[in-house]
Design a protein around this nucleic acid. Structure first.
Length: 197
DNA sequence: CGATTTTGACCGGCGC
DNA sequence: GCGCCGGTCAAAATCG
């Protein structure tokens, strides 16, 4: 572990503004973008020089243009499990990719994650890390990798829906609209509360 | 001392 | 059928 990677406790939006800004110092959310790829032909967001953070959600691979490497995988993984074959109800499929300009690799979003793997992938010189939600019975996974072309960016991909509340959920849900800045946080909240596939 | 990370091995899907 | 590649497992090491 590298303690110096986590300058601020976590993503829990406590009522202490200082902690908020220390977070904002490490993550650049100044231009959060959102896109739900629900069948939208091009719902995926384009990369814009002015948007340091990009979020891609949804199950269908769509046909965007940014996120080439990411999308490639999306198309293979792609919520295939909900296919009507066998009555298997695999509760996965909801996926959210967040691309953030960040000094640190792992965004602590209030959940507790346990690392279970690390891999170097082909189109990316950097390593990709795999995390699982450490809550019992919660199968949500998350991968974290640095953007191969822009080491300043971190791509975090969440997969699945938590079957429990975030330990910190209660804190920020109450104060989402307290300040202008909280608009961004409300987006983050949305990420955590996506409906099932 | 329990929980978490590390890391190489293993496995399954996909393309050729 | 084989090899590549990405994802997961699991034992050992490390941390708090």
């Amino acid at each position: 572990m590298n303690p110096s990677q986590s300058p601020s406790p976590n993503f829990t939006f406590l009522s202490d503004e200082n902690s908020i800004y220390s977070v904002m110092d490490n993550y650049d959310f100044s231009n959060l973008m959102f896109s739900v790829g629900e069948g939208g032909s091009n719902g995926l967001i384009q990369e814009e020089t002015s948007s340091p953070t990009t979020i891609v959600t949804g199950e269908s691979g769509g046909s965007g243009s940014a996120f080439t490497t990411l999308r490639k995988k999306e198309s293979t993984l792609d919520c295939k499990n909900r296919g009507s074959k066998d009555g298997e109800t695999k509760e996965m499929g909801h996926r959210v990719a967040i691309r953030t300009r960040s000094k640190i690799d792992v965004m602590d979003d209030g959940y507790k994650w346990r690392k279970y793997g690390k891999k170097s992938v082909k189109d990316n010189t950097n390593k990709r890390n795999y995390y699982k939600c450490s809550s019992e019975g919660c199968m949500v996974k998350k991968r974290v990798e640095r953007d191969g072309e822009n080491a300043a960016y971190v791509i975090t991909t969440y997969e699945g829906v938590h079957n429990h509340e975030s330990p910190s959920h209660v804190y920020y849900s109450d104060m989402v609209f307290d300040h202008d800045n909280w608009k961004q946080h409300s987006l983050l909240q949305s990420i955590q509360t996506f409906p099932p596939c």
